[in-house]
Design a protein around this nucleic acid. Sequence first.
DNA 1: TATGCACCCTGTAGCAACTACAGGGTCAAG
DNA 2: CTTGACCCTGTAGTTGCTACAGGGTGCATA
Lengths: 136, 136
Amino acid sequence: MKIGELSKATGTNIETIRYYERIGLLPAPLRTNANYRSYGDAHRTRLSFVRHSRDLGFTIEEIRSLLDLSDHPDRDCGDADRIASAHLEQVEAKIDQLSALRDELTRIVGRCRGGLAGDCRVIEALGDHGQCSRAH
Amino acid sequence: MKIGELSKATGTNIETIRYYERIGLLPAPLRTNANYRSYGDAHRTRLSFVRHSRDLGFTIEEIRSLLDLSDHPDRDCGDADRIASAHLEQVEAKIDQLSALRDELTRIVGRCRGGLAGDCRVIEALGDHGQCSRAH
DNA sequence: TATGCACCCTGTAGCAACTACAGGGTCAAG
DNA sequence: CTTGACCCTGTAGTTGCTACAGGGTGCATA
Ligand SMILES: [Zn+2]
Ligand SMILES: [Zn+2]
Ligand SMILES: [Zn+2]
Ligand SMILES: [Zn+2]
């Protein structure tokens, strides 16, 4: 398949596919006479793995390690578990942080009663962390 | 105050302060004979506003608009309210998205029983979104 | 007086993970 | 035989900083 077809098959931008090849995340495919990239099923599978992992928030470097394990089925899978667990912890930490942000923002937004910027409690609250009820 | 003092007073990296000046978020301060930046209280207040807004997740462009309102107290504050409300919505959307991610990751991580990468359910699940229980 | 050290300056390049061209080549349909 | 959809390479832009390199300034100390 040509790059446009692979793009549609995996929901990945064409430029992104070429980018992944450039950084060595996807192997360079064969080329046609016209120098067009020509992909097979293995490429599609691998790109789907990458996209799904990215959708789950893994970084490129984490995905590189995961692909490496996937390429060596005889190795111990402990690293995969550790990468995924560490990532889960980061996601949980981010949720906590954003929840604190949401609480502060809700409180701040609720203070505006309309009127002039000079009297706006939203603008005032943005300049004064002392008004915040907890860390963020 | 010199840049190092402003840095300490606001908890902002020196390079970041110069960066804010370069992009026009902070006004260029006076200079000493030795060409050192010399800040006053107004600068500290403004930088605190910027840092606090960044900590709350506002983008630089949003902060630019908020500062603009703050600089014109006679204007209507409706824009400030709209920017803050829109941002709150984005934070809530991000929390929802990360929660979905957390659920999928928890499910995926729980599947690993150790052993060889070739048999690892984590690696398998990363390659197959069909195993996911909901969108993410 | 020299000299060491902390601090300041400008300008540029790097990070993550793409995205968007510019400027060209290829191919099938009408 | 030309139009339009597709493909190619290479480079630069995005966001919000951060990290130098290579230099100048100012104060205390030997
Ligand atoms: Zn208001
Ligand atoms: Zn606060
Ligand atoms: Zn496993
Ligand atoms: Zn999935």
